[in-house]
Design a protein around this nucleic acid. Structure first.
Length: 655
RNA sequence: GCGCCCGUAGCUCAAGGGAUAGAGCAACGGAUUUCUAAUCCGUUGGUUGCAGGUUCGAAUCCUGCCGGGCGUGCCA
């Protein structure tokens, strides 16, 4: 039961015949901003009055004259310039609450018109360990899958893994030159990760070696420009500004040089772990050789192909282990390699249709009014990720016939997706909704991209371990402080810590508007106050604890036919909040923003806390009131549990 | 240079063109023989970067400026 939808339906009927009214006006029916305005408010009389050329209050009065909602709410009031304030009758919504008691879906009706979604998220490069950068895509994508699926849509999740790129060339090179056979036999994943790191360090060394002279030249050039500027009119404000800008530019170049040079020395004198200083001289051509290994793989070289087939399962096992820990699964894992044999055909067709054309030796798709094209084939004949993405769209359209394809990818790729979607439309895929569900960067508490102290990106697994470790400390401290003494054995504490730690990590990400960067903080995500998973899990556990303490069987209670009554404001507020669950899910799904759901859960948990403070449950004055309150507790817990489940977060019975 | 995004309380963030811009943290003051205080209640704190404009109504839409991030032809 969606109260908002019901109100909108009633208003729609009341607006019939009122010229110029449309469904868009119904969007202006909302939950009240302030309790003193009632439960819901309709703000549609103002724009309507404007369009009809009549005083809004008159329009509001006319609408109310036609409105048939006496069963839903008390007589509405017109306030201010024409706000219509609506106060629901308890008799109206209590039966819906009562219905939710016996409903697996908590009164959330499936959508009338299910759509088919393909959701593309996580997409790590499987040749290297997952890191902090993968968490947002993975967590947000998973939450969207779960939420849309629960709402009744058909959802196909597809992990478009990187299993065909240069990273595999690096591992191939490493395997052929640096392999520790015993280590590989013992733990292939760890050895491949070691090889990857080794090769990338040596490559970085030669990259820097090449880059330093270029930097020096550029510094000289920019320095000259700076000197010239200094000779100009020093009273001109614009010149002074330019000098400052130019000075910053030079400084930045110099600091890059200093940093790169320090890295060079660091790599040369053997202070790295592992020490690569002895390897450097023996692998002067590593960068082109790695590319050659990649090219050989793509060309079908039997040895490289065989090795790739050997590596891939190990790499996939590794990421699957982490997905297992995160509770994430995919319907499909169709990586880049899956599309390899389709790319040439895609390019040929785009050229034949006149969508792509040659430019500087590459094949490009140009867009009206845009300077930069999208490249679909390089000068050397190799394909690019744009090519794969186009082939992927075709495959998904043919295989799944989706109404929408969502790409949960960070915002830095917005131009790529703009181009990709435009190209897809030119190619004939104009009907499908193509959405870049973008998100910001994960920052450290210094407001810079989250890195370790030595500057490496943080591995995803160590992130999980740290969150779980800290959660464990909190769980133990709390259990030790319980009034009747600790009740959790060590292994149970560990299980709870895993759920609390990983839940905190996910929730911290999901509760933020995905479009902005977000600042990563263990302390904040594990805080017990505020909008955190821990607070929500705690609210859930407290409810369960009441049932345990009162020796109440929740399932039996639900079947008992006990009635809900709402004698106090705290109970009424909690009851209404429970019924708003469907509205929150709709909002979260509408713009693919899970933080709408977390915000709702936080509101719900807050109302519950107020209720919990004010309304004794087990010690309620009468047995009827006790049973009513137990039902409210149960509904709250189930709603929190379901909401968290849709976010991919688990709950515990005790914590 | 061009393009995209962002700028809200000391900090981290909310706010569907709607009434007095809200939370958490921090600070301060209260509540506990706990139905789990990992809590609750309250106080303080704002020129929503600046200047215009559109509108009955702007944090939100438009224009310009200031500040920041990201991207910008053969990586993904």
């Amino acid at each position: 039961m969606n109260i908002l939808q019901e109100l909108q339906a009633r208003f729609r009927a009341a607006l019939v015949g009122l010229s110029d009214a449309s469904d868009a006006d119904l969007d202006l029916i909302r939950p009240a901003q302030d309790p003193k305005f009632g439960d819901y408010q309709a703000n549609l009389a103002m724009p309507l009055g404007k369009r009809l050329g009549r005083p809004p209050r008159d329009v509001a009065a006319e609408i109310l004259g036609r409105l048939d909602a006496a069963d839903l709410c008390h007589p509405p009031e017109v306030a201010g310039p024409g706000f219509i304030n609506l106060r629901l009758k308890d008799d109206y919504f209590i039966p819906h609450l009562q219905a939710a008691v016996g409903d697996q879906r908590l009164g959330v009706a499936p959508v009338e018109k299910p759509r088919t979604f393909v959701i593309d998220y996580s997409a790590p490069n499987v040749a290297k360990p997952m890191h902090v950068g993968h968490i947002r895509s993975t967590v947000i994508g998973d939450a969207l899958c779960r939420t849309l699926r629960f709402l009744g849509h058909r959802v196909i999740s597809d992990n478009h893994i990187g299993d065909w790129g240069t990273q595999f060339g690096m591992i191939l090179y490493g395997y052929k030159h640096f392999l520790d056979a015993a280590a590989y036999k013992n733990n292939p994943v760890a050895e491949l990760a070691r090889l990857y790191r080794l090769v990338s360090l040596v490559m970085e060394y030669y990259g820097i070696l090449d880059n330093l002279p270029v930097l020096e030249k550029e510094i000289q050039k920019q320095q000259k420009i700076l000197e010239k500027l200094k000779l100009e009119d020093q009273n001109n404000k614009k010149i002074i500004e330019k000098i400052k800008e130019q000075d910053d530019k030079v400084k930045e170049l110099r600091s890059t040089w200093v940093f790169d040079n320090a890295t060079r020395i660091w790599l040369e004198n053997g202070s790295t772990t592992p020490d690569i200083s002895k390897l450097i001289p023996e692998h002067k051509e590593i960068r082109s050789d790695v590319l050659a290994e990649t090219a050989k793989l793509h060309a079908g070289d039997p040895e490289n192909r065989k090795l790739w087939q050997e590596f891939l399962p190990a790499c996939e096992d590794e990421i699957n282990r982490i997905y297992g820990r995160l509770g994430i699964r995919f319907d499909h894992t169709l990586g880049e390699s899956f599309y390899e044999d389709r790319l040439a055909g895609v390019v040929e067709e785009l050229v034949n249709k006149g969508i792509a054309r040659e430019s500087d030796g590459a094949l490009c798709i140009f867009f009206p009014g845009e300077k930069v094209p999208m490249l679909i084939r390089k000068q050397d004949g190799a394909f690019l990720y744009a090519t794969t993405d186009l082939a992927t769209i075709r495959y998904r359209m043919e295989q799944f016939h989706p109404d929408a394809i969502l790409y949960v990818v960070d915002h830095r790729q917005s131009m790529h997706f703009k181009h990709l979607f435009e190209a897809a439309r030119l190619w004939g895929y104009g009907d499908v909704e193509l959405q870049h569900v973008s998100f910001g960067t994960v920052l450290g508490e210094d407001n810079r991209p989250f890195k370790t102290r030595s500057g490496d990106t943080v591995g995803l697994e160590s992130l999980l371990d740290e969150a779980v470790l800290r959660a464990g400390e909190i769980v133990s401290a709390n259990d030790d402080a319980k009034p009747d003494g600790p009740e959790l054995p060590p292994e149970r504490r560990r299980e709870i810590a895993e759920i609390v730690g990983i839940g905190a990590l996910k929730y911290a990400d999901l509760s933020q508007n995905r479009t902005s960067d977000y600042v990563f903080s263990y302390d904040k995500m594990l805080a017990m106050n505020g909008n955190t998973a821990t607070y929500m899990q705690y609210a859930y556990a407290r409810v369960r604890s009441i049932f345990a303490k009162g020796n109440v069987d929740a399932a039996e209670l639900r079947r008992s036919g006990a009635e809900i009554v709402l004698p106090t404001p705290a109970e009424r507020a909690l009851a209404l909040e429970i019924l708003r669950f469907p509205e929150a899910l709709d909002r979260a799904a509408a713009d693919y923003r899970p933080h709408q759901l977390t915000a709702y859960l936080f509101d719900l948990a807050n109302r519950y806390s107020t209720f919990f403070e004010n309304c004794p449950v087990l010690r309620a004055e009468t047995d009827a009131l006790r049973r009513s309150r137990l039902l409210l507790c149960d509904l709250t817990a189930r709603t929190i549990g379901k909401g968290l489940e849709l976010l991919g977060i688990k709950v515990v019975e005790k914590m």
